[in-house]
Write a protein that binds this DNA or RNA. Structure first.
Length: 922
RNA sequence: GCGAAAGUGGCGGAAUUGGGAGACGCACCAGAUUUAGGUUCUGGCGCCGCAAGGCAUGAGGGUUCGAGUCCCUCCUUUCGCACCA
């Protein structure tokens, strides 16, 4: 055995052993229960980042742990290979996205291998390969047949100079990232997947996912956003001679079977596409302005109504007023992102129209408000400034009346005032006032009564509203799955027949940032109509990359099946037993995958309700952000490794760029990203320390679910520990030399205590494994080594004449090292593998059983109890393990330290917590 | 803005259930070994205090014999917000 720990050499050797023995090839087996351990596959951006190392180490720890626990483990890996960065790289370097992507995959695969992950590489897949994405196209066609895919318009960012659609990420301060031109919103036709049809099941099934973190389930439930409320209408009559448009269908989901539902389900209207949507269509001068509210109890407090700028009535009002037209235009510029819309300064303008309150008949002014979202509900809201915070501020800003109609409930006692917002007047536990016949009613009764009255007038009723919107999958980009549709001048939009799949994406395109690259490719574009055979054009839009990642976990079960999307092996491996990935995917990716699974189930392709039985959401890896801003507003980011932070005498921190010594601005902390240039390349860590130390450090430095602000301070501790382990193993390379069974009762008291500690630490570590708390497992490994080293010190000082035999010591060390190496092996597989063999424990540590504590070693005759007086720690006592409470009380009250602090006062009460502490209350 | 989480020493973090706050490390300080050290070992290390003891888990309240843990209000940070993946 080598005396010195050389990580790189033993890691190469161990990896060779695994590779040559095909150790991680997973095959369906009836003998052992399967365990499908899946980490979210990476986007092949070029190199692994810290988040990958963290993610895949967690997955590998679980894989190896369950492997040793006797499960038949599958851990596959693949590449989420379509996406925008490949096109950006093409624009920057002139390399086709395909070549860039395949090169990156090769590089990152090498990195993953050097980290020693127990991956079954025979199942590797890449979503940009035609044999994968053909099934995207195939399922798209099945969904089209079922009406689960349909067309409608959607809003996109349009760069008028490059004449191209921009991703949100490519819009900076409202301008195109390359051209600097102000971005316009455009409505274009797109394909949608009807995820809203599954809203009810996606929501209800969350309750049947006990292995998911509560916070993720809460986020998904809120995203789906089922709210019970009242949908009702304000009738209006426009001035004579005006030409009001019809109200366009709203884009939210209305459930068909809810009680009191007045409207047909939205899905039917949406699929029809565009009916009633044309602003030019003639229309009546009378109409109904529909709104939705969850606070129908405050309907008597309506003092205005507000509509989104995109609302048809807004367009109509704008026709008669240049000022209004300008305002509507202003609202339509800028970001399409909801976060931007919601944080904008609230602005509004009166339309000059009024609408009629459905219950009082009062005329209510109609405003256009930039805070009203066209995408949610009806694109119109009732304004109740007294009981809604946004309405309150809007009313204060524009001098609209504020009318209290609910008396504060238990939460608030202060008098109602219109001077400032009082949150408690928003609560639902109040009672109606100033509300005519509804006075005195609580929330539930008021809503019932008001909904009934509205229904009687034919102006509304109770309604369920969903926040969830259908999933627009069309992207005006090159590097994605082609949408299998052919546009024929005669037959219209014709689906590509199955026999012509896949529609192959040409791999030699180099996008230049203008237009749609596929639209410039005659060889791709030109085709024959499958129906009539006449010349036709292919659809040039590609699919959202979330489509690719919505089912890859199924394909790992049968990656070699050229004839069908999935087969019976999916039934063997699925559901995924443990899914691991970043918390940033808590909503979209996980929701789309759940939806996709249910669709495939309903198409009879899988018999699975939910794809992921257990979910571990890894925290983000963050780093400092530094930048400089030029006068023209251009921002340059500097990597934190190039920046030096100084603290002056007064404790003020300042940062300068090392290369020029001039100051840079601190931009706080955020996730490591290319765009902010704050990434740390894990390769440096791997080159310097090797895989085991990098893995150990990653696991030790924080619990998997916590956000982690990157720092490599502490990596030395991990290195020191593994060096210490190696040296200790070297010192005891002959610990298996004893050839007799040793009775543990022959141990000295100190040795027995050490053994008890080892088993207790193991006991705790096994508990922590179940909680995915790998940082304390790593810490437990350090503690065990500390105990063993103390034992070694003890042995050095041993009195030869008194202690029976060296065999006791060797047996203890053998047992301790055996436990330690196995406990450690999921985290640092290489060194564990190597030492296991070197010390003669066996040929392969993966084949060894997982260590369990010996109950006999854990037993203690006496236990230590903490003693408190009035809840303050005043000492401790040792009592027999089986002492009863009365006996403990007597021992404690007789304790001198207790006597001192009680100092003659009468004892009111003695609280005994078995096994933990005693509290004397005086 | 809305939704979700997190705040504990100089730093990462620990503390199954409401029961000893600071395990295990990093950094730092002192010492030993060494020709040397990005080596190894020993000891110290929350704050105040000579000590007894007191104070401390983002801030402020509350419940309890007892609160880092439960409840309320607030602050800060991070993640998501539908075309980054």
């Amino acid at each position: 055995m080598q005396q010195k720990y050389n990580p790189h050499a033993i890691e190469r050797e161990a990896q060779k052993f695994w590779e040559e023995s095909g150790a991680f090839r997973a095959a369906e087996s009836p003998d052992r229960p399967k365990y499908y351990c899946l980490s979210m596959f990476p986007y092949p951006s070029g190199r692994l980042h810290m988040g990958h190392v963290r993610n895949y180490t967690i997955g590998d720890v679980l894989t190896r742990y369950y492997w040793m626990k006797g499960r038949n483990v599958l851990q596959p890996m693949g590449w989420d290979a379509f996406g925008l960065p490949a096109e950006n790289a093409a624009m920057a370097n002139g390399v086709p996205p395909a070549k860039w992507t395949y090169d990156n995959i090769a590089a990152m695969k090498g990195q993953l291998k050097s980290l020693g992950f127990a991956i079954d590489w025979s199942r590797e897949l890449a979503t940009c390969r035609p044999d994968y994405y053909r099934w995207n196209q195939w399922l798209f066609l099945r969904m089209l047949e079922k009406g689960l895919v349909y067309q409608k318009t959607g809003v996109v960012n349009w760069d008028p100079v490059d004449r191209t659609v921009l991703a949100n990420e490519q819009v900076i301060d409202g301008r195109g990232w390359r051209t600097g031109a102000p971005v316009e919103k455009r409505e274009i036709p797109m394909y949608y997947m009807a995820i809203t049809r599954y809203a009810e099941e996606l929501l209800a099934a969350l309750d049947r996912l006990p292995g998911w973190p509560e916070r993720v389930k809460t986020m998904q439930a809120n995203w789906i956003g089922k709210s019970f409320g009242v949908r009702f209408a304000f009738p209006y009559e426009l001035p004579a001679g005006s030409n009001p448009p019809p109200l366009s269908p709203s884009s939210h989901a209305l459930l068909p079977k809810e009680e009191g539902n007045l409207e047909p389900p939205l899905f039917a209207r949406e699929r029809g596409g565009g009916e009633g949507g044309s602003p030019e269509a003639p229309a009546p001068e009378k109409g109904l302005l529909w709104v939705f509210t969850t606070r129908a109890d405050t309907i008597m407090g309506v003092t205005f109504c507000a509509i989104a700028a995109e609302h048809p009535l807004a367009a109509h009002a704008a026709r008669g007023s240049p000022k209004l037209a300008a305002f509507v235009e202003e609202c339509k510029r800028g970001s399409v992102m909801e976060a931007d819309l919601a944080t904008m300064e609230k602005k509004g303008m009166p339309t000059g129209f009024t609408v009629t309150h459905p219950l009082t008949g009062e005329q209510v002014p109609l405003w256009i408000g930039n805070y009203v979202l066209m995408a949610y509900g009806e694109g119109a809201v009732m304004g109740v400034p007294a009981h809604d915070e946004r309405d309150f501020h809007f009313a204060r800003q524009y001098g609209l009346p504020i009318r209290q109609v609910v008396r504060a409930g238990a939460a608030g006692t202060a008098a109602f005032t219109t001077d400032r917002w009082q949150g408690w007047y928003e609560s639902k536990d109040g009672v109606c006032v100033n509300s005519g016949k509804y006075n005195g009613l609580g929330y539930d009764e008021a809503v019932e009564a008001i909904a009934a009255d509205l229904k009687a007038k034919g102006l509304g009723g109770k309604q369920v509203l969903w926040r969830l919107r259908d999933w627009g999958i069309s992207r005006q980009r090159y590097w994605g799955t082609p949408i299998p549709i052919i546009h024929c001048p005669g037959c219209g939009d014709v689906p590509v027949p199955d026999r012509d799949l896949p529609v192959v994406l040409p791999e030699d395109c180099v996008p230049d940032g203008t237009g749609n690259p596929l639209a410039k490719r005659e060889d791709f574009l030109k085709c024959k109509c499958p129906k009539c055979g006449r010349p036709a054009r292919r659809e040039t839009d590609t699919m959202d990359t979330f489509v690719d990642s919505s089912w890859y976990y199924l394909r790992y079960a049968c990656p070699d099946n050229g004839g069908s999307m999935v087969d019976e092996r999916v039934g063997h491996w699925l559901p995924v037993d443990q899914y691991i990935g970043g918390i940033e995917h808590a909503i979209l990716h996980l929701l789309y995958s759940r939806f996709w699974t249910k669709v495939m189930r309903d198409l009879g392709l899988v018999s699975l309700d939910e794809p992921f039985a257990n979910l571990l959401t890894q925290g983000m890896v963050l780093n400092e952000i530094y930048f400089r801003k030029t006068d023209s507003g251009r921002i340059t980011y500097y990597n934190p490794s190039e920046v030096e932070v100084k603290t002056d005498d007064r404790g003020n921190r300042s940062a300068v760029l090392r290369s020029d010594g001039r100051p840079v601005e601190a931009g706080g902390i955020g996730t490591m990203s290319k765009s902010r240039n704050n990434g740390v390349d894990p390769q440096q860590l791997m080159d310097r320390y090797g895989a085991d130390i990098a893995r150990f450090f990653m696991m030790f430095t924080s619990p998997p679910e916590d956000t982690l602000v990157w720092s490599d301070a502490g990596v030395e501790g991990a290195a020191r520990f593994l060096r210490r382990l190696w040296a200790f193993a070297y010192d005891h390379r002959d610990c298996k030399r004893h050839d007799q069974l040793v009775g543990w009762t022959m141990l000295s008291k100190e040795q027995q205590e050490a053994r008890r500690k080892v088993h207790e630490i193991l006991n705790q570590a096994n508990y922590d494994f179940g909680k995915f708390q790998f940082n304390t497992v790593a810490s437990a490994c350090m503690k065990i080594l500390n105990v063993l080293q103390d034992l070694q010190e003890l042995e050095k000082r041993r009195d030869e004449s008194r202690v029976p035999s060296i065999r006791n010591y060797d047996a203890l060390i053998e047992e301790g090292l055996g436990i330690l190496l196995r406990l450690l092996s999921p985290i640092t597989p290489h060194i564990s593998h190597h030492l296991w063999r070197e010390l003669g424990f066996g040929a392969d540590i993966l084949a060894a059983p997982w260590p369990e504590p010996d109950p006999a070693a854990l037993a203690e005759d006496e236990i230590e109890l903490v003693v408190q007086v009035n809840g303050r720690k005043r000492g401790g006592v040792r009592v027999p393990r089986d002492a009863d409470n009365k006996a403990i009380e007597n021992i404690v009250l007789a304790d001198p330290a207790v006597q001192k602090h009680v100092s003659g006062q009468p004892v009111k009460k003695v609280v005994v917590v078995p096994g933990r502490l005693v509290n004397v209350v005086v």
